[in-house]
């Protein structure tokens, strides 16, 4: 039987579970990569600040000090737009791209910006909600339950049709 066009780029052994809700290990791995990405951006920002400070005062170089609450605030300011824009455009952040995941809304549709922003904020504020996935029959995190979203395996370059997304025991 010929495979659907969107699965042409997917290895044969992985085509059977495309569109199914992803499990905890894959999702934590993807979230970890996204966390590293945000930390890297944060580090780049503070490195830029230190470099500018050094250019202004070249007598001595020192890293920004007394950061206090600025780190989590800046991290929130970076992480939430990063995740929200990723989910509402392609449905996948960098971590999700590496692990082959895609975040979808109800019926397998792409998330709107508002829902993506809310999901990103919830994920950044309460990342432990991800650990509800193994306890959920549908592999949903707390954020997914609240916002009716899901993260599915999707290794293809293009988004899978909505009717191929599996949540629970039924094809939607």
């Amino acid at each position: 039987m010929a495979s659907p066009d969107h699965l042409l780029s997917v290895p044969v052994q992985a085509r059977s579970f495309q569109g199914r809700a992803a499990g905890i290990v894959t999702r934590v791995a993807a979230a970890s990569i996204d966390f590293i990405v945000v930390i890297a951006i944060l580090g780049a920002i503070y490195t830029g600040i230190a470099a500018v400070t050094f250019i202004v005062h070249p007598s001595s170089f020192h890293w920004p000090q007394n950061l206090g609450w600025s780190v989590p605030v800046v991290g929130f300011g970076i992480g939430v737009p990063y995740l929200a824009l990723s989910w509402c455009t392609s449905g996948r952040s960098y971590g999700a791209t590496v692990l082959g995941l895609r975040v979808l809304g109800r019926g397998g549709c792409r998330l709107g910006f508002g829902r993506a922003l809310a999901r990103a904020a919830l994920c950044v504020v309460f990342p432990l909600g991800l650990f509800w996935v193994p306890f959920s029959r549908d592999n949903r995190s707390l954020q997914d339950l609240l916002l009716r979203t899901t993260a599915v395996y999707d290794w293809s370059a293009v988004r899978a049709p909505a009717d191929r997304v599996v949540v629970g025991d039924q094809l939607r």
């Binding site: 199914r20 992803a22 905890i24 290990v25 894959t26 193994p134 549908d138 395996y153 599996v166």
Partner: peptide, 24 residues
């Protein structure tokens, strides 16, 4: 790993019907 964790949790929670499996 997702499958293994899911199966373990299903056993611990005594679920009769396992969750959505990654067939194949």
């Amino acid at each position: 790993a997702d499958e293994r964790v899911g199966r373990i949790l299903d056993r611990v929670l005594l679920r009769r019907n396992s969750r959505v499996a990654a067939d194949g």
